[in-house]
Amino acid sequence: MNVIVCLKQVPGTAQVKIDPETNTLIREGIENVINPFDTYALEEGVRLKERFGGKVTAMSMGPPQAEGALREAVSLGADEAILLSDKAFAGADTWATAYTLASAVNKLGQYDIIICGRQTLDGDTGQVGPELSEMLEVPFVAYVSRIEEIADGQMRVQRMVEEGHEVIEAPLPTVITVVKEINVPRLPSLRGIVKSKSAVIPVWTVPDLGVDQSRVGLAGSFTKVIKVFFPQRVCQGEIFQGELGNQVECLMGKLKDAGLV
């Protein structure tokens, strides 16, 4: 069972700031982590390896510091890790990201299953997984909450839908995205950390992938973020203080002023 896990390094906090000039996240000075949803993908990949043998390859497209996320993936059980990093990859939308990942998967060659988190914490689109399967021309199942069985080149999985669960069978190779209900990710092990520190993580660039530069990064993106903003608060709550009687009086006054009573 050869498993590829796609993961992304994201800011480890919800308190991110947006650069008003470029409309991108200000990543400086913020601790980065593996996208939480991707940790479930990695854990499931490692569990598949433990059940069926084979290996887990963690893959990430990102700036050079994304190597940190891949080292962490090795400490959590990934056998190999590959970083897709090139200035030309910067500014990619989901399509250009999926194209780059698909090119790397094709370069890797044989695989049985690709696992992604359901979405990222920063982009929140949930599109890279399905687009990746499209480009690789393999089946896709989203929101997988349980892998029931893998046998004879087929996998049966449970997927979360609004009213319950669906059970789906798909031939391998397949791309799936997983939800957090699928497992409880393990903590790193001391031996894993030691291994991760010395792990060799190759960096694949545009020439390594042999891709068309106009199809990756900002140049290859069909969508462009024009503006990122916090929604304006149109109305605000008001808290009355003091004695209860006074509070009731204030409230009634306000309601009367507004013509509501």
Partner: peptide, 20 residues
């Protein structure tokens, strides 16, 4: 089990016997 998975029981065992 969490401590075992994290190799914490290996800390005090010599390397020849699968410790750290």
């Amino acid at each position: 089990k969490d401590l075992a998975d994290a190799d914490m029981f290996r800390v005090f065992v010599p390397e020849e016997y699968e410790g750290l």
